[in-house]
Write a protein that binds this DNA or RNA. Structure first.
Lengths: 411, 411
DNA sequence: GTTAATATGTTGCATAAGCATACAAATGTC
DNA sequence: GACATTTGTATGCTTATGCAACATATTAAC
C-alpha cells in the first residue's frame, strides 16, 4: 500500500466517510435527530437526511419509536426532531481470548452491548495452536444459531503474544508459540468470510476498557493489566497505539531497581505472584487467596500492609516512568490485582509526588470496572471499530481488488 | 471543535484533500509526472491533470524544464511524462529558536531547503518574554526583503518550555517564564498575518530531524537531544506525538538509579555538564572543552574511557526503558553530546543487550547529522507540514468562520 | 523507414454527492 | 389563534471525479 496519508478522496469515498461519521456519532451520542447529526457532522440538513436514508435502507439505523426521557424542564421551541438510533442487532461481532488457563468468548452487537459470553477452562501450554484456535472458534460459535451467522461482521482474537498488526505471532512464551500466523489460522477455521484481527491481550483489554468512552476519545490513556503478569496498552485519541512491533505499553518489563539487589522489572514487583509469594510467608491461612490478602490489608495487618506498601511504591515508580515518556493524562488499572489500588490510592499518590519533579502534571488514575472477559470484549471492539471506519467490509465490494503488490518504484 | 474524526467531507474538501496529497507526494518523491501522481494517489489520470492545473495556476507547481538524469539503462516504452516539481521559492516559512544562550532563525522554502539562517548570542534568563519575542522576530525578518514578505506562509517558534498545542507556555524554567501565551505574543509582534506555532525545542528538533525523511514516515522514532539538558521527542508515522501536555518523550527526566546513592535522572547521567564535570577532575588541560574529552576517549585514555563507559550504560538503560513503553523502531541521537556515540556504539549495544530481555527487538540507532539550527529548522518544518495539510491557510477563505463556541450539548 | 505497441496528457460527457433554497409540518410563545 | 422556531423533505445547482476516446510522443520490430 502506498502512503495511506497520501491516498486521495473520490466520490464514493465522501459518502462512505460520511456514513461512517454518522454511525460513529450515533454510537457515541446514542440518539440524534437528523438535524442534530447534520450539526455535529457540519453537514447540510438535507445531506444528513440522505445519509440516514441509506443507512436505514441498510438496516443499520432506525427511528426510535419512543423518545422517552425528554429532558424535563428544558423544552425547546420548534418542531421536535425524530430520534435516530443504531439497530443494535443489525449485526454482531465476536471476540475470543485465548488465555493460558482459559478461553473466553464474547458476542457484542452494533451498540457494543455484550450479548453473550462463554468461558471455558483451558490448558494453553499443552495444546497446539491449531487445536487452540479450533476450540476458541467453536466456543465462540456454539451459541450462535446458524441463521444469525451471516450477520457476523468480524472476529477478533486476543492472546498473550507479541504479534504484528497482521496477526502474525512472533512469540508467545506462555503458550509456547513462535512464528504462527494466528489471524490466518482463525480465518481458515472460521465458517465465515469476515474480517479477522488478532491482538495482544493487554492491548485488546486496553481497547475494550476505553472504547466508546468519551473520556478516552481524546488524550492519552495508559491501561495496565495486573495479574500474575503485568501488561499494558496505550490508547491515543481513542485508537490503540501499538508501537513499531505491537509492544508499546508493555510496562511490565520496565526495570525498577530502586532497591539494591538483582535488577527487577515492574512485573516482578507488582504482579500477583510476587504479592502472594510474600503474603504466603506471613499469612495464617494455609493456602491463602488474594482475597485474604486484601482483607488483611483492609484490616491494617502490619505484614500485609508492608507488602502493599512496597507494591504501591513500585507501582508509583512505574507509572511515573511511563508518564515521562508518553505523557498520559489518564491511567486505568485493570486485572485482579487492581483491587488493591483503592486501599492504597493515597499511598500511591504520595509516592508519585515524592518521586516526580513537581513541575510535571500527573494523570488521573481510575479503576477498570469491567468484568472478566475484558480482553475478549476488546478484541470484539476492535472489529466494531473497524466496521465503523473506512476499512469497513461494507465498502469492500468496490475496493474488491487486492492488487497490493504494485511496484513501489518510487523508493 | 467537535470530534475531528467525525467531521465530514464535502465537495471543496475533496479537492483540497487531493491538492494536499499531490503537494505531499511531490515533496516526498521530488519529481513526478501527472500519470505517476495519479497512480500514487489512486486517482484518475484526468483528475490528476485537473489538480495539477489548479496547483500550477497557484504557482506552487511547475513543469520541470529539464529532465536530466534519466535513469540510464532502463528506458521505458511509451510517451514519456512531463516531470512536475514544486516551485521552491513560491512561498517560504520562518522558524526561530529562542534558546537560553542564543537565538537562531531559519528560512526554508517549499522544498524544505534551508534558504538562510541567523544566529545571535542571547542571555535568555535576563530578558523578558516580550523582549525575547521582539528580538527573535526581528532577527528572523532582518534578511527578508519587504517585497518577499507576503510570500511567507508560516512562522514557528521553539523554546525550552512546557507548552500546550496552542503555544501557551505553562513553564519555562530555564528562561523564567510562566503562563505566557508565546504564540499570541509572536502573532502580535509579527507584521504578517500568517499561522504561528510554538513548540518545545526538543519536539521541534525531532520534527526537523525526521521531516520528509521517508524512513521516519512510518513507524516510531525516538529523538534525543543531548546537551547540558537532555530532551526528546517522539515521531509516530511522521507526526509529532506530543502527549497530553506536550511532554511526551521528555526522556531526560527518566529516573535511572541503577547505582546506589541519590536518585538521579537520565539528564544528570548523560548530560554535557555531568560529563564535563567528571572530565575536569581528571583532565590535564586547565579549561577543557568537550572536544578534548572526545579526543581523549578516542585515544583510549582510561579516565576518559571510564566516563564514557558510564555514559554508555546510562544511555543504554534510558533507551531500553523508553522502548519498553513506546516500542520505537528507530532512535536518532542529536545534540553535541551525540558526537560521543560513534565512539561508544559497540558498548551501548552491549549494554542494551545485557539489560533487556532477549525476546525484545531493538531499534536502530542513528546520528542526526543536522547543523546547529535543528530546532529552528524543525519549527519552520511544522509550518511547512501544516501548509501541506487540510489546515493550510490556502483553504482559509472558505472556512473563514471561526464559530467554534457552539454549544456542546451532547456531553 | 514505416508500422505497431505503449504510455502520457487532454477533452467531452456522465455521475455522484453535497449545498442552497424553499416549503410543509410540528411544536412552543404570546 | 397568530407567530416564531425548528425539523424534515423535495428541487435544482455546483463541483469534482470517473470514463472513454483521441491526439501525442516515444520505443520496438520488421
Amino acid at each position: 500500500m502506498n502512503d495511506p496519508a497520501l491516498t486521495a478522496s473520490s466520490h464514493r469515498r465522501i459518502r462512505q466517510s460520511n456514513e461512517v461519521a454518522a454511525l460513529r456519532a450515533l454510537h457515541q451520542f446514542g440518539r440524534l435527530s437528523r438535524a442534530e447529526l447534520a450539526r455535529k457532522l457540519r453537514l447540510n440538513r438535507s445531506s444528513s437526511g440522505h445519509i440516514i436514508a441509506s443507512l436505514t435502507a441498510d438496516g443499520l439505523v432506525r427511528e426510535a419509536i419512543e423518545d422517552p426521557p425528554e429532558q424535563p424542564g428544558y423544552a425547546r421551541v420548534g418542531r421536535p426532531g425524530i430520534m435516530l438510533e443504531l439497530v443494535p442487532d443489525a449485526i454482531f461481532f465476536l471476540g475470543v481470548e485465548i488465555g493460558v488457563e482459559h478461553i473466553s468468548t464474547v458476542e457484542i452487537d452494533l451498540g457494543t452491548n455484550i450479548v453473550s459470553t462463554n468461558v471455558e477452562p483451558f490448558d494453553g501450554p499443552s495444546i497446539s495452536v491449531e487445536a487452540a484456535v479450533d476450540r476458541a472458534v467453536s466456543l465462540a460459535l456454539q451459541s450462535i444459531p446458524a441463521s444469525k451467522l451471516e450477520r457476523c461482521e468480524g472476529f477478533g482474537v486476543s492472546t498473550p503474544a507479541q504479534m504484528d498488526k497482521h496477526g502474525l505471532v512472533r512469540l508467545a512464551p506462555l503458550l509456547g508459540w513462535r512464528n504462527v500466523h494466528l489471524a490466518e489460522l482463525v480465518r481458515d477455521v472460521l465458517p465465515l468470510r469476515v474480517p479477522v484481527l488478532a491482538e495482544n491481550d493487554a492491548n485488546a483489554f486496553a481497547i475494550g476498557a476505553t472504547y466508546g468512552r468519551s473520556e478516552a476519545h481524546s488524550g492519552v490513556t495508559l491501561f495496565l493489566v495486573m495479574e500474575s503478569g503485568v501488561g499494558g496498552g496505550i490508547i491515543i485519541d481513542g485508537n490503540l497505539f501499538r508501537g513499531a512491533n505491537g509492544l508499546a505499553g508493555e510496562i511490565g518489563h520496565l526495570i525498577i531497581s530502586d532497591a539494591p539487589g538483582p535488577r527487577r522489572n515492574l512485573e516482578q514487583l507488582i504482579g500477583l505472584e510476587t504479592i502472594m509469594g510474600e503474603y504466603r510467608k506471613t499469612s495464617a491461612v494455609s493456602h491463602p487467596a488474594f482475597g485474604n490478602f486484601l482483607a488483611d490489608v483492609q484490616d491494617r495487618l502490619p505484614s500485609a500492609v508492608s507488602i502493599a506498601e512496597h507494591w504501591a511504591k513500585a507501582l508509583a515508580t512505574g507509572l511515573v516512568q511511563a508518564c515521562r515518556i508518553i505523557d498520559a493524562d489518564r491511567i486505568v488499572l485493570g486485572g485482579s490485582v487492581a483491587a488493591l489500588y483503592p486501599l492504597m490510592a493515597a499511598r500511591v499518590a504520595a509516592h508519585i509526588h515524592a518521586i516526580q519533579e513537581s513541575s510535571f502534571p500527573f494523570p488521573s488514575i481510575t479503576m477498570n470496572d469491567d468484568g472478566t472477559v475484558g480482553s475478549a470484549f476488546g478484541a470484539a471492539c476492535m472489529l466494531h471499530q473497524r466496521y465503523l471506519s473506512l476499512e469497513s467490509q461494507r465498502f469492500a465490494d468496490d475496493t474488491a481488488e487486492f492488487e497490493e503488490p504494485e511496484a513501489d518504484e518510487g523508493r
